[in-house]
Design a protein around this nucleic acid. Structure first.
Lengths: 124, 124
DNA sequence: CACAATACCTTGCATTGCAAGGCATGATGT
DNA sequence: ACATCATGCCTTGCAATGCAAGGTATTGTG
C-alpha cells in the first residue's frame, strides 16, 4: 500500500503532483535547507509558494521517506535543517517527471481539440 | 473583485487551473452535453474525471458566467443540457491558456535546475 | 409490470494551499 | 548586560478542491 505504484489515479492529479515534483527536483543536487529552497522556488511565479505550504509538504515527503533531513552547522551560523533525496525519492521523482510529461502531452492535445468534432467532418 | 483579472495568484494554481482549462477548451467548438464531455475527457488518463467532479465544476463555471447552458431536445432522445462558452468564458480561456504555457515553461526550467547550484560550477 | 441504460445532480469526506502567527537562536548596538 | 532585529523552522485554522457513492427522472425492452 502506498508504494511508488500509487500513481493509480495520480496522473490525474497533476494539481498535487506539480508542487511535489518541483520540490523533489530541487533536491536532486546537493542538500538544501528550507528557506533557501523557498527562495529558489520563488524565482518563478508558478512556484512562488510560502512557508506555510513548503514545510507541511516537506513533512509529508519525509513521512513517506522520499526525502531525508539532517541538522547541519555550517561554520558560524546557527544549524539548519538540510533536506536531501532518498533513493526512494529519486525513483519517485523519475516517475512523477514521466507522468508530468504525459500530462503535458494530454492537455496540449485537448487544447487543440474541441469536444464537438472528434475525428471528422471537415469537407471531404 | 473576481473579474477576469483574478489571476492574482492564479498562475500558482495550475492545480485548479488545469481542469478548468481543459473544460473550457472542450467547449470552444459546438455545444456539448455533460456525459459527452465526460467521455471526451476520459480519452486521456490525465483528465479522466468522474461526474462528481464534472458537474459541480460546470456549476461553478456557470455561476461565474464563463459558460451557458440550454436544454435541447435532439430528435427522439430525452432532452440534454448543452453547455457552451460565453464571451467572458472565451476571454478566460485565452488567459488560462497563457498562464498554463507560462507554468510549463517555469516548471521545465526547474526540472533542469537543482536548487543547490544556481548558475555555475561545472569544470571551468 | 420489472429492469436496464442514459443523463443529470447531490452529499459527505479527506486532502490541499495558504495567511497568519509563534517559537528559538544568533548578530548588532548601546 | 540588555533590548532589538533578522534568520530559520514549525503550527493553527480556514476555504476550496476532487471524488466515491448514491439519488432522481426518463426512455426503451421484455
Amino acid at each position: 500500500m502506498d508504494n511508488e505504484d500509487s500513481q493509480d489515479k495520480w496522473q490525474i492529479q497533476l494539481r498535487k503532483g506539480a508542487l511535489e515534483l518541483v520540490i523533489l527536483a530541487a533536491l536532486r543536487g546537493p542538500p538544501v535547507y528550507g528557506l533557501a529552497m523557498l527562495r529558489h522556488l520563488q524565482q518563478f511565479p508558478t512556484t512562488a509558494i510560502t512557508e506555510g505550504t513548503l514545510y507541511p509538504l516537506l513533512d509529508r515527503l519525509k513521512r513517506e521517506e522520499l526525502v531525508g533531513a539532517d541538522w547541519i552547522q555550517d561554520g558560524d551560523t546557527r544549524p539548519r535543517k538540510y533536506y536531501r533525496l532518498t533513493a526512494k525519492g529519486e525513483r519517485k521523482f523519475q516517475a512523477l517527471a514521466a507522468s508530468w510529461r504525459q500530462s503535458i502531452t494530454d492537455i496540449n492535445a485537448l487544447l487543440t481539440m474541441p469536444a464537438g468534432a472528434p475525428v471528422d467532418t471537415q469537407g471531404s
